[in-house]
Design a protein around this nucleic acid. Structure first.
Length: 482
RNA sequence: GGUCCCAUCGUCUAGCCUGGUCUAGGACGCCGGGUUUUCAUCCCGGCAACACCGGUUCAAAUCCGGUUGGGACCGCCA
């Protein structure tokens, strides 16, 4: 394959490790990854940790683990901005020397007051240029005196427009934001500056990011132009919204991706779900594997409007993906949740037994975290439920006792190795034939065995439980029915 | 407040670019029914939307303008 550096597709995800992997960041990562894979390009992971105060290693670890869990693999990186200070410094000095940037000594309170005043006048808040024309001499002196300062970019006043792959032409007027800060000092670059240097140095061809960055774009383009960098293609993704239609944030509940894993969601479900937040294939297909997504992904199928994070659809997808798992896969998936709930103890149940149990709940399951509650009764020594639960529609106490006695007698007569679902069903259904309503026999059996009103079928449960435990529970039910 | 972005069922969306095939399609949810001892699965059916006003046109969900509504950003955060 001939190498064409000019047309090479290179995209990146540039999260800042100032919090756990956010669902919005994860989706941006997904879209970048899909775009890269679809177009045989490269996906780069860059950690934007210029904010030394807020960046934490554990957040970086969380981001990396989250992406890995989803199956989003990067071709290069992770690069860390904190590892590249000399690169930013070099460009910063160049900007300063060429007069495209200058030191600003204004105090923050002063700036804040200015902003308030401008806003109260109905103007766009922007720097007034107080330090824009300080002489070299004065700047040097104040720097030498140790006065606190920042580096501002001298923003040309002009109209800046760019073509957004999702939104079309977008135009801004730079005079509305004025000269902005690009570094705290030579060694501390700020986002709008560092991002431009890195995207250039890493030869990024397409910047695919959240719409919240759209108004940063003109600032970045200004720097790009002064430095003579070529402009990447931009694509601003619609935001993921909470139920109140505002940008999804902590107050809407879990926004940390790994939190969903903890809650028992499968990564396949999350990937499928996130892809459909702002994108669709244009067909009726709803279930998409990563491979399907790579095959069908296209930026021009991306929505312009924000999308509400609808957990019900995620639940549905999760259930669908759980049902697609084999029993062995389900067991592996379930194990952490079972041991966390301390349901697995020495010996019982073993893997085979667990698989039998899981089989009964395979298609009833929406989230893995529901498992302990659903199947906990298998593991308990003694079930705890009110007598009323044993009673089937309008049944008298007499009838209930009769049913339980019949169950005990009938099941006692079944040989241990005949205690299978099929057999039990055959035997008990035969008895219910005489009754007008088979619930009269089967309902008390269900409750006796599970202690629940919604459960897997009683023949299934009895077979898994085995003869001894089954009879034990029926006798227990008789005591409760007293 | 300023700038920018956006606008089809409750939600995710198809259709819009290239007007007629749209009495607007699918999915989730919801409601009803079937299967069933319960729940779930599965199957069948139903409710439900082109924000508004004007213009262009024989014809507008689709093109244009405005209004309204929503959102994002306006940091020495990213």
């Amino acid at each position: 394959m001939p190498k064409e550096a000019k047309t090479e597709i290179r995209v990146r995800l540039a999260p800042s490790p100032t919090g756990f992997l956010h669902i919005g960041t994860a989706r941006a990562g997904l879209f970048n990854y899909l775009f890269a894979k679809k177009n045989k390009g490269k996906f780069i992971l860059r950690i934007e940790d210029t904010d030394q105060e807020r960046s934490k290693p554990e957040y970086e670890a969380d981001i990396i683990e989250g992406l890995q869990w989803l199956g989003i693999k990067w071709d290069e990186g992770p690069f860390r901005q904190s590892d590249r200070p000399e690169i930013y410094r070099r460009y910063l000095e160049k900007l300063l020397n060429d007069g495209h940037a200058y030191y600003c000594f204004c105090a923050q309170e002063e700036l804040e007051a200015m902003k308030q005043e401008q806003m109260s006048r109905g103007e766009a808040p922007r720097y007034n240029g107080k330090c824009a024309n300080l002489s070299n001499q004065e700047t040097k002196k104040r720097l030498a005196d140790g006065e606190t300062s920042v580096v501002r970019f001298r923003a040309a006043k002009k109209k800046i427009s760019f073509t957004d792959l999702i939104r079309g032409e977008v135009e801004f007027d730079s005079s509305l934001f004025g000269d902005f800060v690009i570094a705290k000092d030579l060694n501390s670059p700020l986002y709008n500056f560092a991002v431009i240097i890195d995207d250039y140095e890493m030869r990024i061809s397409h910047v695919i990011r959240g719409e919240d960055h759209i108004s940063n774009t003109p600032k970045q383009i200004l720097i790009q132009e002064i430095l003579g960098f070529s402009q990447p293609q931009y694509a601003h993704l619609p935001l993921i919204l909470g139920p109140d239609r505002s940008k999804l944030s902590k107050r809407h509940g879990a926004t940390s991706l790994l939190e969903y894993r903890k809650q028992g969601y499968l990564s396949e479900a999350l990937v499928n779900f996130m892809a459909f937040l702002g994108w669709n294939p244009g067909t009726d297909q709803e279930i998409f594997s990563m491979t399907d997504l790579i095959r069908d992904f296209s930026l021009d199928k991306v929505q312009k409007a924000g999308a509400i994070f609808n957990i019900q659809k995620l639940d549905y997808l999760n259930g669908a993906y759980i049902r697609e798992k084999t029993l062995d896969e389900l067991l592996e998936l379930a194990l952490p949740y079972l041991s966390r709930a301390e349901l697995i103890r020495e010996g019982w149940p073993n893997r085979e037994k667990l698989k039998e149990i899981l089989a009964l709940y395979h298609e009833r399951l929406k989230k893995l975290s529901e498992l302990p509650e659903l199947i906990g009764f298998f593991f308990k020594k003694k079930l705890d439920y009110p007598k009323e639960l044993l009673i089937w529609k309008g049944m008298t106490d007499q009838e209930l006792k009769l049913s339980l006695n019949t169950l005990e007698e009938t099941l006692s007569a079944v040989k241990e190795n005949n205690f299978t679902k099929g057999n039990l069903e055959k035997i008990l259904m035969k008895i219910t034939e005489k009754a007008k309503d088979r619930g009269g026999l089967l309902w008390p059996l269900r409750v006796a065995l599970t202690g629940q009103k919604a459960s897997a079928g009683p023949f299934d449960v009895a077979a898994v439980l085995g003869k001894e435990k089954t009879l034990e529970r029926i006798r227990e039910a008789k005591l409760i029915a007293q």
